[in-house]
Design a protein around this nucleic acid. Structure first.
Length: 375
RNA sequence: GUGGCCAUAGCUCAAUGGUAGAGCCCCAGAUUGUGGUUCUGGCUGUUGCGGGUUCGAGUCCCGUUGGCCACC
């Protein structure tokens, strides 16, 4: 169930509410990534406190480890990891891109030599749906092929057609699985960086009919303008009354730019991954907290921030933890970065409701670049 | 006291008598449906000290200082 609550008068930004089996998601929403049944370095209790509304899991990764026998034994991913909120599971399509060296694509599906021990691992559209059903996913993603950048028009065209045929098979598989009645399923638009192919892919995916639509095949190495075009060329052909989800994005300014282009949902590893490498997000841009300039700084990562790291600890202490490779360091920066992303979405929701989103977006984007411009 | 081995970047160590290097540390940068990873740059030297041989010495010779080992 997806309900539009407000739209911005001067851009395509939407304020909406998506209802899933494990709860409601207020959009625009950011979804922390928990590939292996864990948002790296933080507990479900900490996620709830941030507050995260929904998290991601990954079909491919959970399929190879711990495997579906374990998952079914524990009654699904929610119970296994003790997260009772909504979970969206990526289908493994991205691994077709990221693990390109160890997989082969056929009409039937994707054959991997799994990345842990080389065991042959086959994921078809039907298997992807079955796995996500076993995981107890609230939002399942169809299996797609995510082609790399650059990608020739001809390959992108054949790829999106394969993705559409796989989407159709996912839909058929769902219809024969009564256990997935409470599960939402999203289709995925591909089409590379080509306007005609983005439209063709969007129309083909909408034709099949899903509970929501993702725009995939972005953040695969293309320049930012190409990425924005890929979204702009897909969005007009997606129904207004279904959620739109751009997969794998992005930086804080990118999220606001994409919200302005009509996107409702995001996931991205940047806040969690960069945190583990010592980079913190602030309204002025990113800080590499390992840098020597922070050694003696007593203030928080960001003034006024109410996250667990900023409430209690100084930049200098967190820098020390990071340099000393103390686990607490990357936990604190992860909590801060996730709070930053989630708070950014909360402010987007507030300003869309208030009709001031465009003003907020312009101000934030300008402020975020200040630091980069100075250096 | 005698004999032997050793001494090169902050650390651990390379370098036929022929432009003193590597790894780690340190200082920066990259990272977008996961990558605590990895990658890319950068800084760093009276080769313990003093002589000598040589066109040329980290390298060979003499002395000296310090460390380690063995033996009286």
């Amino acid at each position: 169930m997806f309900k539009l609550l407000a739209t911005d008068p001067s851009c395509k930004a939407r304020r909406a509410r998506l209802t899933t089996a494990h709860g409601v998601i207020e959009t625009p929403a950011f979804m922390p990534v928990g590939t292996q049944g864990s948002v790296k370095a933080v507990s479900p209790a900490e996620l709830r406190a941030l507050p995260a509304q929904i998290i991601l899991g990954n079909t491919y990764h959970l399929f190879v480890r711990p495997g579906m026998e374990v998952m079914r034994h524990f009654g699904g991913l929610h119970r296994f990891m003790n997260w009772d909120g909504p979970i969206l599971t990526d289908s493994g399509g991205y691994q077709i891109f990221s693990l390109a060296k160890i997989r082969k694509i056929t009409e039937e599906g994707a054959q991997f030599q799994n990345h842990l021990d080389g065991t042959p691992t086959f994921i078809s559209p039907e298997i992807a749906m079955e796995i996500q059903s076993s995981l107890g996913s609230d939002i399942a993603m169809v299996l797609d092929e995510c082609p790399p950048y650059p990608c020739e028009h001809d390959y992108a065209a054949r790829s999106l057609e394969l993705t559409a045929r796989w989407a159709e098979r996912c839909k058929q598989a769902l219809n024969s699985q009564p256990s997935t009645l409470n599960q939402l399923t999203f289709g995925i638009v591909q089409g590379g960086t080509f306007e005609d192919l983005r439209r063709a892919s969007a129309e083909a995916t909408v034709q099949i009919g899903f509970d929501g639509y993702a725009i995939g095949g972005v953040s695969v190495g293309e320049p930012e303008p190409e990425m924005m075009h890929a979204v702009e060329w897909s969005e007009p052909f997606l129904p207004n009354d279904k959620p739109r989800y751009v997969m794998g994005l992005g930086t804080p300014p990118q999220l606001l730019e994409l919200i302005a282009r009509g996107v409702d949902m995001f996931d991205c590893v940047l806040p969690t991954r960069l945190a583990r490498n010592g980079t913190a997000f602030t309204s002025g841009g990113t800080l590499n907290l390992k840098n020597a300039e922070f050694t003696l700084q007593k203030g928080p990562i960001e003034d006024g921030c109410i996250c667990p790291a900023c409430r209690e600890f100084s930049r200098g202490y967190i820098r020390h933890l990071l340099k000393a490779e103390e686990i607490l360091g990357l936990r604190l920066v992860t909590l801060h970065n996730l709070h930053f992303y989630l708070n950014l979405m909360a402010r987007a929701r507030q300003t869309i409701e208030a009709g001031t989103f465009e003003n907020f977006r312009r101000g934030f984007v300008a402020g975020f670049s200040v630091r980069e411009a100075e250096s």
